[in-house]
Design a protein around this nucleic acid. Structure first.
Lengths: 245, 245
DNA sequence: CGAGCTTTTGAACGCAGTCAACAATTGTGG
DNA sequence: CCACAATTGTTGACTGCGTTCAAAAGCTCG
C-alpha cells in the first residue's frame, strides 16, 4: 500500500545492511525479490501452529506478535515485531509452524515466496548468511526474554521490554524525541511478560509514577534513558546491533 | 576421548540426517571436518558473554547448558544440551556471545573451527541449510520454554521439561526402558525453570509421589509416558523431529 | 570419617493472581 | 453528532503459589 513498490525491499535491505555489506549484484537480487504487499486486520492470525506456509512475511507497518497457548488457555507472547522484521523466516527450513503469528495493530506486511527466497539464497551465500543471522538475532532475543520472564520481577521486566522497544524502533527510525508509538493493550503486554493483566496495569502505573515513562494515548516517552536502562537491567548487547559492544 | 577419531563427525551427521539427506560428497566433506575432542570439567565456562569465539562446540558426552545472570545475581538457564547438539553454533554469524555456556556434568566436546564450517557451508548449500535448521530448532525450543516459564505452573513446567528430555535423549539413543540419566542438581533444574531450588525440590517430590517419575540416584524412569505428557502439557511438535506432526 | 555439596523440611512472608465491579475510552450505527 | 455497545483501563479485597531464611539430614569423595 505504498506508492513505491520497491519500498518493502529497500526496508529489508537497509535492515540487513545494518550488519552486512552486499555487492551491487546481491543488492539488485534483493531488490528484484517479489514482495506481495497486503494490509491486515488485527483480529485474524497470519499463520497458525501446524501450518505449512509457502511464504514468509516482512513487516512493513504496524506490529505483530508470535504466541502460543497452553492447554489451560493461558497465552504467552514470545516475540513482538516491528517494521523490518521477518517473524516467520524460520518456516523457510522448518516443516511446520510451531507458533501462531498475528498482528497486534492494523498492519501492512509483504509476503515473500519461499521458492524465491531459496533461489536467492542458493545463488548468493552472503544473502543466506544475512537471513540466517536474522534468525539468530531472533533466537538471542528469545534467550533474553527467558531471562526476563524467568528471573526478573514484573517491574523490572516491563522496564526491560520498554528499553528493547525503544532501541529496536530507533533502528528503523520510529522514535522521535524519545517518544514512540506503542499500539498494544495492557493485556497483550501482560501476555508478553508472563504476568496477569491486572498486575500489568499496576506495574505500568508504578513506572509512570516513578517518572520512568510518560504516556499519552498510545505514545510512550522516555524522559531519562539511563534511568530506564538501570530500572530494566538492560544491556543491548543481545540485540547484536551494528555498534557492536 | 573415543577410540575412533571419526565418531564425533558421525554423531553430528546422524543428527543432521534426521531431517536432511546428504549426497556422498557432502557426507564426506562433513566427515573430513576437523574436530578437536576435549574433556571438560563442569566448573569452568566454555565461553562467556562478550566472548568472540573462533570455533563452535559439538557435545559428545555429558550435558551442557547456556545461561545468563541478572544484575541481581539470579541465574536463568536458557537451554540444556545433549550429545549431538551444537550449543554455540550461533557464534558462526553473531559477533559476540550473548550467553554463557558451561558443562553441567563432566563432558566431552568437539571443537570445530568457524573457518572450516564457513568453508564447508560455502561449498555445500544443503549443509548450510542443515546447520541453519539446527539453529532454528534451538529457537523453537526457546519459544516453548518461554511458554513454559511464562504461563505454566511449576509442577507442569517440571513435567514438561522431563518430557522434553526423554524425547531428545531418545533421539540419540540415551534412553533404555524409559530410563535416562539426568546428572543435574535440583538447583540447576530450578534455574532452568525459573523457580527457587526449594520449590523445585517440593515439585520434584510431588511428581514422584504422583507416580509420574521414579528416581534412583541420577537415573529417572518414566513409568507412564502418556500420563507424564498430559501432566506436562507436552506436544513434541516444537522439537521438529523426523516423524513430523 | 569428616568436609562440602545436595536434598529435605518447616515456618513466615510477599509478589502476583483471581474475582468482581466500575470508570474511561474507543468504536459503531442511526 | 449523539447514544449505545464493546473494549480497555483501573481499583479493592482476598487468596495462593512460590520465595526466603534457617536448619537438619543425606550423599559423595578424598
Amino acid at each position: 500500500m505504498t506508492d513505491d513498490p520497491r519500498s518493502p525491499n529497500l526496508l529489508m535491505i537497509s535492515k540487513l545492511e545494518n550488519t552486512f555489506t552486499f555487492s551491487s549484484e546481491e543488492k539488485q537480487a534483493l531488490l528484484d525479490l517479489p514482495v506481495q504487499v497486503t494490509v491486515l486486520k488485527e483480529d485474524r492470525d497470519i499463520v497458525r501452529v501446524g501450518d505449512r506456509p509457502s511464504q514468509s512475511c516482512l513487516i512493513l507497518e504496524g506490529f505483530t506478535c508470535i504466541y502460543k497457548v497452553t492447554s489451560e488457555g493461558n497465552r504467552q507472547i514470545m516475540a513482538l515485531h516491528v517494521p523490518g522484521d521477518i517473524p516467520d523466516l524460520q518456516s523457510l527450513h522448518l516443516r511446520f509452524m510451531d507458533n501462531n503469528l498475528a498482528p497486534i495493530s492494523p498492519c501492512t506486511v509483504g509476503f515473500i515466496e519461499h521458492r524465491d527466497l531459496l533461489q536467492i539464497c542458493e545463488r548468493y551465500p552472503s544473502i543466506t548468511a544475512a537471513f540466517w543471522r536474522e534468525t539468530l538475532v531472533d533466537a538471542s532475543i528469545f534467550r533474553e526474554w527467558l531471562l526476563n520472564v524467568g528471573r526478573r520481577e514484573a517491574y523490572t521486566r516491563m522496564a526491560h521490554l520498554l528499553c528493547e522497544f525503544l532501541v529496536r524502533l530507533e533502528v528503523v527510525g520510529l522514535v522521535e524525541n524519545s517518544t514512540f508509538d506503542l499500539p498494544i493493550t495492557q493485556a497483550e503486554l501482560a501476555d508478553a511478560l508472563g504476568i496477569s493483566a491486572v498486575h500489568m496495569n499496576r506495574v505500568y502505573q508504578a513506572l509512570r509514577a516513578d517518572g520512568l515513562i510518560q504516556t499519552k494515548g498510545t505514545q510512550v516517552t522516555v524522559p531519562d534513558w539511563e534511568k530506564l536502562k538501570a530500572a530494566g537491567d538492560f544491556d543491548p548487547l543481545y540485540l547484536h546491533l551494528k555498534g557492536g559492544q
